[in-house]
Amino acid sequence: MFTRSLFETADMAAQGALLAEVAGLVEARRVRSTLVETLGPIDAATLKHAHAAIESGSTRGKLVLEGF
């Protein structure tokens, strides 16, 4: 995603155009997030819950941990 800016490539400005295009698609609801659940702050209990959910094999989409 950010390779151009990380390596300061000659076409670095193209990243802004790509992000603007994706933002337009999200606003037009043509692209949806795969987020299914926000679990809360990072602590032992939340990590245990997230790990169990992933290990179960039934999780669809992304889980989010907050508080980095």
Rank of each mutant, 00 (worst) to 15 (best):
E8H: 15
L18M: 13
T38N: 12
D11R: 00
R32I: 00
R29I: 00
M12D: 15
V31P: 09
T9E: 12
Q15V: 03
A14F: 08
L6R: 02
G24A: 00
A13C: 00
A28N: 11
G40S: 08
T34R: 07
E21A: 09
L25C: 03
S5I: 14
M12W: 12
E8Y: 13
S33Q: 05
A28G: 01
A14T: 10
L35C: 08
T38I: 11
A13T: 07
V26H: 08
V26F: 09
F7T: 15
V22E: 12
D11W: 01
G16D: 06
V22I: 13
L19N: 10
A10L: 10
R4T: 02
A28C: 02
A14V: 10
E8C: 10
V31F: 12
A23N: 11
R30N: 04
Q15R: 04
V36Q: 04
L35T: 03
A23I: 10
V31S: 03
L18W: 12
R4V: 01
R32L: 05
E21T: 09
S33L: 00
L39S: 04
E21P: 04
A28Q: 08
G16F: 01
R32S: 11
A20F: 05
V26G: 04
A14C: 04
S5A: 06
L19F: 07
M12E: 15
G16S: 02
L18Y: 12
Q15E: 15
L6F: 14
G16M: 02
R4E: 05
V22G: 02
V36M: 05
D11F: 00
R4F: 07
L19Q: 12
R29F: 06
E27V: 07
R30W: 04
L25R: 11
E37Q: 09
E21Q: 13
E8M: 09
A23Q: 13
A10C: 02
F7Q: 14
R30H: 08
R32G: 02
A17L: 07
F7S: 11
V36A: 05
A10I: 02
A17Y: 11
R32M: 05
Q15M: 08
L18R: 14
A20C: 05
G24W: 01
T34S: 10
G40P: 15
E27N: 09
E37R: 00
A10T: 14
V31R: 02
V22H: 06
L18E: 15
T38V: 14
G16Y: 01
S33W: 06
V26I: 15
A13G: 03
M12L: 12
V36G: 15
T38K: 10
L35V: 07
L18V: 13
E37G: 03
A10Y: 15
R4N: 10
L35H: 01
E27I: 05
D11G: 00
M12P: 01
E8V: 10
R29W: 04
L25T: 06
Q15F: 08
L6D: 13
L35G: 01
L35A: 08
E37A: 00
L39F: 04
T38A: 03
S33E: 01
L39A: 01
A17F: 07
E37P: 09
E27Q: 13
V31N: 08
L6M: 14
S5G: 09
S33D: 08
L6T: 04
T34M: 05
R4I: 01
A28E: 15
G40E: 15
T3W: 12
V22Y: 09
V36C: 11
E21W: 09
